[in-house]
């Protein structure tokens, strides 16, 4: 019944991108937690070659160098939760991982997989947007390694669609190290504590000095075709004192700038209400932090 003709498990990044370059028609398998259900439900047709990249050791892990945190694409959600660098510097990402599926799924699901699946509701994507992450894409045209970086905000083009070329592999993400006084928040609304797809999610990052916000980043999940940065909401906050009036204006801007849809999980109206109420709640918490 299966159309897969070849299974390939490269041991290095070079081998993997070679395969993408040469074979054409490759399905990349990492954790498999999105791939397998999509295949079983008939939503994803496997290509002729199934390439399992789990054996590429260099794609897994977290390191800090040159003022940047680099996270390999094969780093699992459990790895992130247990990593001291992530715990110390990237609180939104930790919070998102804490709301990510179940322990069993976290043990195998990878950050790279969550990014490449490009769900508008993908749990880690909103924090990555807020953290100004860049995706690291690798290919090997004519035998030479080619790396290209792209802000994660530009990476997503629609549900399940990204700017990654078929010959490219996502090697990881790079995140500028947030400053010491950085405030990061993540909120996911689901109808239960975990094992749920976000109805909406909100990421916030910024610096609060003397009651004034700067370097503000706000992003929303599940309110548009991709996870999105909220430029109007950011503008309503940037450089302003975090007063009740500012918070009210930002929450209203948030409600006005999202474009959610009605689906089986929530109506567009309710999603807008949640964006408004929860943006306000997060900012209230930041103001009282």
């Amino acid at each position: 019944m299966t159309e897969i003709e070849r299974y390939y498990a490269p041991a290095s990044l070079e081998q993997a991108v070679d395969c993408l370059q040469e074979a054409g028609g490759v399905t990349v398998l990492a954790g498999g937690t999105d791939l397998m259900p999509q295949k079983n439900a008939g939503r994803l047709k496997p290509q002729r070659t199934l390439m399992n990249i789990r054996g590429i050791a260099e794609l897994r892990g977290v390191e800090l160098s040159g003022g940047e945190i680099r996270i390999g694409a094969l780093t699992t959600i459990t790895d992130l939760l247990e990593n001291p660098l992530v715990r110390q510097h990237l609180p939104q990402l930790i919070e998102a991982c804490n709301h990510f599926a179940s322990d069993q799924i976290r043990n195998v699901a990878t950050l790279g997989g969550n990014i490449c699946n490009a769900s508008p509701a993908g749990d880690t994507l909103v924090p990555l947007l807020v953290l100004d992450a860049r995706v690291d894409l690798v290919s090997r045209p004519e035998g030479r390694m080619l790396r290209r970086g792209l802000p994660v905000a530009e990476f997503f083009v629609g549900p399940g669609k990204t700017r990654k070329a078929p010959t490219e592999l996502l090697a990881g993400v790079t995140i500028p190290l947030p400053p010491e006084n950085y405030l990061g928040r993540f909120f996911k609304f689901g109808t239960r504590p975990a094992l749920d797809i976000a109805t909406i999610s909100i990421g916030f990052g910024g610096i609060l000095e003397g009651g004034v916000l700067s370097r503000v980043r706000v992003a929303f999940g599940a309110v548009a075709a991709t996870p999105v940065r909220a430029s109007h909401t950011e503008a309503a906050l940037e450089g302003r004192p975090l007063t009740e009036a500012t918070i009210a204006a930002a929450a209203a801007a948030a409600r006005d700038e999202v474009t959610p849809i009605d689906d089986v999980r929530a109506s567009a109206w309710y999603r807008k209400e949640l964006i408004h109420n929860m943006t306000k709640r997060i900012l209230d918490h930041v103001a009282h932090a």
Binding site: T191, R192, P193, A194, L195, D196, I197, V264, R265
Partner: peptide
């Protein structure tokens, strides 16, 4: 939590992702 959504005779959530049983917490 539980709600089997039926619209115009069509079941919208025949799975445990969208048909929400109570979980332990």
């Amino acid at each position: 939590t539980e709600n089997l959504l039926v619209e115009m005779g069509v079941m919208k959530n025949p799975n445990f992702r969208d048909y929400k049983l109570v979980t332990a917490p």
